[in-house]
Design a protein around this nucleic acid. Sequence first.
DNA 1: CTTGTAACCTGTCTGC
DNA 2: TGCAGACAGGTTACAA
Length: 271
Amino acid sequence: MPELPEVETTVRGLAAVLDGRRILTAEARRGDLRRPFPQDLRQRLTGARVTGLARRAKYGLIDTDRGDTLIFHLGMSGSWRIDPKDIGKHDHFVIDTDEGRRLVLNDPRRFGSLDLVRTDEIGSYGPFVAMGPEPLGNEFSGPYLKGALEGRSAPIKSLLLDQRIVAGLGNIYVCDALNLAAIAPGRAGGGLSRSRLGLLADSVKAVLAEAIEAGGSSLRNYARPDGELGYFSSKWRVYGREGRPCPRCGAPVRRRVDGGRSTFYCAKCQG
DNA sequence: CTTGTAACCTGTCTGC
DNA sequence: TGCAGACAGGTTACAA
């Protein structure tokens, strides 16, 4: 379930094993995921030392001492595993380190991606070009949202999912943030008041921070016992909780499908 | 430009 | 037990 908190937890887990290590081998077990892998992936990674890891929106970034950055996206079903017992058919990329640790990228649905770009050209990496601010950063705020949503008639839910407006939110945390802020998912973004948008920005930050905290505190080295990174049990407010009580008012949580995507909300306090 | 829909691909779960 | 159908966290191309 990779949204921003899951990617953050994954990156921290990878860092524990990879940061400062030399890559002995980097093997792609197929030629592509959503996009083709770089053809010189193995050559550019073999023997390189990892100098740092970071996250941008839902992308993980792995810098090397050769001036390259390996950029991964987990799509809908991707995950990294540490030292798995064996390699399965959905294990697409394998890194072995100089400490004898093995990292494996698994992605059954193959909606993920793996790219390698020059670190000093990271800003021109396609997906990053038009990307909006980080939701946990200072730039993302009520006033920012007011400006970004000016004149927009689309539902606030779909605007929050637009990575050009704010980068890193997905279906789960958008549903939860709208519930915490008591805003109806279908409200036109441009029609929300300054104070509502301030509350919304704070709510987005709160649900993300809480999920990252849950990911960090519930897992040793951010990995499950089987070595899978980034997947943890977080207590979602409304997502996946149809029929259960709304945490604000106790009314049953409802599910609605728009555009083939589930929206969970409380009809009473998000009316 | 904005908005909404379909498609990408595989696995899992539910109900008959 | 088998099988059809619904559903899944993201992104992007395309139509209107």
